[in-house]
Each structure stands twice: as structure tokens, then as C-alpha cells.
């Protein structure tokens, strides 16, 4: 009982602490967007001279006739009431920002999970093996792998994978999220609910052919993202393994005569995982903002591309919306990680 309430209190404190951060981010976005060159209203008409009444109307509609401080307060109020506004960019003009984010987010989630899966499958075992065999050749190899793969430009790796598997071998599709026409759960098929994530939807639909298509499209981007991240994962896991292998409780276990394998894989690895989860969790949160370089390389329509498009087309409301959404996710996930950590290790709460 006491434990639960103090955890709740901790979670609340953390959440409240996250608010100012969100606030600063919002302010920065507001300021930067307003000093960007070019007038968003005139941009709508292109080079043509718009009729004066129309400009005035658009200004009023977007609230740009108000003094900056009023605009700012309206902006904050809208965001905190969940109103992200309506896009004013060339491409999405008139569509609600929220609906655009909603259509892009499932793609991003799929890619983030795919990338994390590959990164964990490759990175964590490598890190453990390296940590267990400190200063041997395996360790050196893993360290080199970790360093090198982590600094490879992700789009370059992506292009190479595309070239090899998509163009030369023709094994995997190199572009987009889908080949073919009927996406999972598209009519006439009926699904009880739809997530927008093609892998999940095809399973809901029970169509294994669709599932294979979805996975084949997800494979190359996930591999690209995952391989690069695996370098980071391996290094993080290795460092934490070293720390726990040298720690008192492993020494104690060793003194008790526990076999080396058991020490490493049961005691050290388990304890090393707590900080690793924190770091990797944050990485996951960052992936939710969209891996823009990977998305662009594989013409994969995720949140990153949406933000990129709205930056180049100076779609103010869209940039604001995506950034707010992104910040909210980061804050939520880091909050979840903190709370998770706190519930495992009560010392953190002190």
C-alpha cells in the first residue's frame, strides 16, 4: 500500500517535471516558425497577387491578425485542449493535422518495432558475449563492430541493402510499405478493428499472404535501422556487463562457487539489463518520432517524412502538431521507463 502510493507520487512528480520541458519545446517551435522567411498566407497564392479581402480573411481564419502574444496563448490553449489545428501547407492544406499523424503513426510504430527487434537480436547477444570475454579477440571484434556500424550513414547502408536485395538479387521489395492493391483490412475484407499497421492488420484479417507482403516490405528498413542501432546496443550492454561482472554481488556469487556461466548469464546479465532497458527504451522513444533517413531511403511513409515534408513546405501547424506529438511521446515513454526503474529499484525514488 505504502509502496504503491509513493510510486504514484513519484510518477506524478515526474510528470509535473516533464511539463516545463514540453512548454519550452512548444515555445521554441512557436518562435522559430514565426521567424522563418516567407509569409504563409502569401505562399498559398503562389506568385499571384491574391485579392485583398481573401488575404484578410485567411489571416483572421488562422488568427494571424492577432498580436503575437495572443497568438501564442491561443496556440498553447489549442494544444493543451488537444486541438492540433488544420494544415496550411501546399500538400495537406485543409486536412486536420491529427488525421495526418494518425495515418502516419502506425507505419512509424511498425518500423520502430522492427528496428528494435533486429537491434536487440543482434546487439544484445554481441554485448553479452563481449562483456563475458573481456579483452579477448571476441571483445575486440564486438567493440570494433559496435563502433563501425554505429557511424555508418544509415541511408548509405540502406542504399546498399536496397541494391543487393532489391535490385541485384530481387529478393525483397526496396520501396514503400506495400505492393499490390488491397491493403490488409481494405474492403471487401472485414476486420473487427484496424490498426493501420499492415503486419497486425493482416493477422487480424487472417491473411497470411498479406502478412508475408507486409513483412517483406518491413524487412529491409528494419534491417537497416536495426543493424545501425545494434552497434549502440552492443556497446551499452557490454559496458553494463563489465560493471556488473566487477560488482560485489557477482564477486560474492563467485566466492560461493557458482559456475562462471551462471554468474555471467544469470547474475550479471540480469542486473546489467536494468540500465540497459533505460537507455534502449529512450532509443525506442526516439524511433517513434520517425527514422526520417531510413524512411526517405525506402520511401516509407512515416512520421519522420511527414515532419520533413512539413518543414520544407513550411506548414506551420503541421510542424507544431508533429513536434507536440513527438514531445508527448518522448515524455510519456521516459516517464514509463522511470517508473519501471523505480518500481524495480526503490532507491531511485529517494
Amino acid at each position: 500500500m505504502a509502496r504503491g502510493s509513493s510510486l504514484l507520487a513519484y510518477a506524478l512528480t515526474r510528470a509535473i517535471l516533464a511539463l516545463p520541458m514540453l512548454f519550452i519545446l512548444l515555445t521554441a517551435v512557436f518562435v522559430v516558425l514565426r521567424i522563418l522567411p516567407g509569409d504563409p498566407i502569401l505562399a498559398l497564392w503562389g506568385g499571384r497577387t491574391p485579392p485583398p479581402d481573401a488575404v484578410e480573411r485567411a489571416r483572421v481564419q488562422l488568427g494571424l491578425d492577432q498580436p503575437p502574444i495572443v497568438q501564442y496563448l491561443t496556440y498553447l490553449r489549442n494544444i493543451f485542449t488537444g486541438n492540433l489545428g488544420i494544415s496550411i501547407g501546399e500538400q495537406y492544406r485543409g486536412t486536420p493535422v491529427w488525421s495526418q499523424i494518425a495515418t502516419r503513426f502506425p507505419a512509424t510504430v511498425e518500423l520502430a518495432f522492427g528496428g528494435m527487434l533486429v537491434a536487440s537480436l543482434v546487439g544484445i547477444p554481441l554485448g553479452v558475449v563481449a562483456g563475458a570475454n573481456r579483452d579477448r579477440w571476441v571483445d575486440l571484434g564486438v567493440r570494433l563492430y559496435g563502433t563501425i556500424i554505429w557511424v555508418i550513414p544509415i541511408f548509405w547502408l540502406g542504399l546498399i541493402l536496397q541494391l543487393v536485395f532489391g535490385v541485384w538479387l530481387r529478393w525483397l521489395p526496396a520501396n514503400g510499405r506495400w505492393t499490390g492493391v488491397d491493403t490488409p483490412c481494405a474492403p471487401p475484407s472485414t476486420c473487427r478493428f484496424q490498426t493501420g499497421m499492415y503486419t497486425v492488420d493482416s493477422l487480424i484479417e487472417g491473411n497470411l499472404g498479406h502478412f508475408a507482403t507486409a513483412v517483406s516490405h518491413l524487412l529491409l528498413p528494419s534491417l537497416t535501422l536495426g543493424l545501425v542501432l545494434s552497434g549502440f546496443f552492443a556497446k551499452t550492454v557490454r559496458a553494463n556487463m563489465l560493471r556488473t561482472i566487477g560488482a560485489d554481488f557477482t564477486e560474492a556469487a563467485r566466492a560461493r562457487g557458482v559456475p562462471r556461466r551462471a554468474i555471467i548469464y544469470r547474475h550479471a546479465f540480469k542486473n546489467a539489463l536494468v540500465p540497459v532497458v533505460t537507455v534502449l527504451g529512450l532509443q525506442f522513444a526516439i524511433l517513434f518520432a520517425g527514422a526520417v533517413l531510413t524512411e526517405k531511403t525506402f520511401s516509407y511513409q512515416g512520421l519522420g517524412i511527414l515532419l520533413l515534408e512539413s518543414i520544407t513546405s513550411k506548414d506551420m501547424t503541421m510542424i507544431q502538431g508533429v513536434v507536440v506529438f513527438y514531445a508527448a511521446i518522448i515524455v510519456l515513454i521516459s516517464l514509463a521507463i522511470d517508473i519501471l526503474g523505480a518500481s524495480i529499484d526503490p532507491r531511485i525514488r529517494l
Partner: peptide, 22 residues
């Protein structure tokens, strides 16, 4: 610290891109 953390929380590449547009 708060300001820097907020800066850090923005996706770096696109933040730099936004500044570059600016």
C-alpha cells in the same frame, strides 16, 4: 538544464534542418 534538455529532446537532424531553412 531545462532548456538544454528540451533542445536535446527534439529530433536533432530535423532541428538542424529547421535552423538551416531559417
Amino acid at each position: 538544464v531545462l532548456v538544454m534538455d528540451s533542445l536535446y529532446a527534439f529530433p536533432g537532424l530535423l532541428l538542424a534542418g529547421l535552423i538551416a531553412v531559417l
